[in-house]
Computed example of a mutant assay.
Amino acid sequence: MSFTENAWKIFNQSVEDYHIKDDVNSQESNPFQTGSLEWILYSKNWIDTVQWHLEDIIREEDIDPSEALKIKRRIDNLNQRRTDLVEQIDFWFFKKYENITPNSDARINSETPAWSIDRFSILSLKIYHMSIEASREDASEEHKLKCTDKLQVLLEQKKDLSSAIDQLLSDIENGTVKMKLYKQMKMYNDESLNPILYQKMQKK
């Protein structure tokens, strides 16, 4: 089984587990060994799934502004946790391939493995929800046909992205691509980097 086949299986397990209750306040019950790559992938997708539904809720036209602000704060927190997990995935691959000496002409990929995997995780959610829309009984035939067309595009994207990820990992393994780690350096959650936050702290 290729890496992406296994990752896709884990992502879909997470999505299915979430939708048992379909509640943004449900507790994650990760079935994998803590700290394993499988555990990280599952947890990453669980966060993506919760965030997906929070993004739906916050777009309710009549939502109370104070409730919307709470959700926005929660989304910010999830974004930070998501970034941390993506960086853990990259670190896992970095350690796996640390003894490989890249070729002298090895290239640098524009995107690390984990950020491609991040898109792969979100794609599993797009396909899950578009599949529902394509067969929704209370929707018009026009709606279902449009969603079926979109679903086919997403499935093609899944095929292409899985191939690209597996190829990237293979290229790192055989030395034709050099893997480097980069921290995302998110600034908005850091009281020392966000001017709104540090100016407020200075006034105290």
Rank of each mutant, 00 (worst) to 15 (best):
L37N: 07
N30D: 03
W115Q: 14
R73A: 14
P31G: 09
I75F: 04
H19A: 01
P65Q: 00
N12R: 02
L193E: 10
E87L: 00
L168Q: 11
E87D: 02
S124I: 09
W8F: 10
K9D: 07
E60Q: 06
K159I: 10
V50Y: 00
A134W: 00
E191W: 13
Q167P: 12
E173Y: 07
I63Q: 01
V50S: 03
I20H: 02
K95P: 09
F3W: 10
Q167R: 13
S131M: 03
I89G: 08
F3H: 06
N25T: 06
T148Q: 01
K144I: 01
L37C: 06
I71D: 04
D22N: 10
L54E: 09
Q184P: 10
F94P: 03
I122Y: 15
H53K: 05
L78F: 03
S2W: 12
S36G: 00
R59M: 03
S135R: 12
E173T: 06
I122F: 14
K183M: 11
S163I: 13
E61F: 06
F91N: 02
P65N: 00
M1R: 10
R81T: 09
A106S: 00
K95F: 01
M179R: 03
Q184Y: 15
I47Q: 03
L125S: 05
L69P: 11
P31E: 01
S43T: 01
F3R: 05
Q88L: 04
A106D: 07
D160I: 13
P195C: 03
E16Q: 09
Q152M: 05
V24S: 04
K178E: 10
S104K: 14
S36V: 08
K178V: 12
N12T: 02
F93A: 02
L154I: 08
A139S: 10
N45V: 05
G175I: 05
G175S: 06
R73L: 15
D160S: 15
Q80R: 11
K150N: 05
E16S: 05
Q27C: 07
T112S: 12
L37D: 05
L37P: 00
M1N: 11
A114D: 03
K95L: 04
E141H: 09
D118N: 15
N12E: 02
D56E: 01
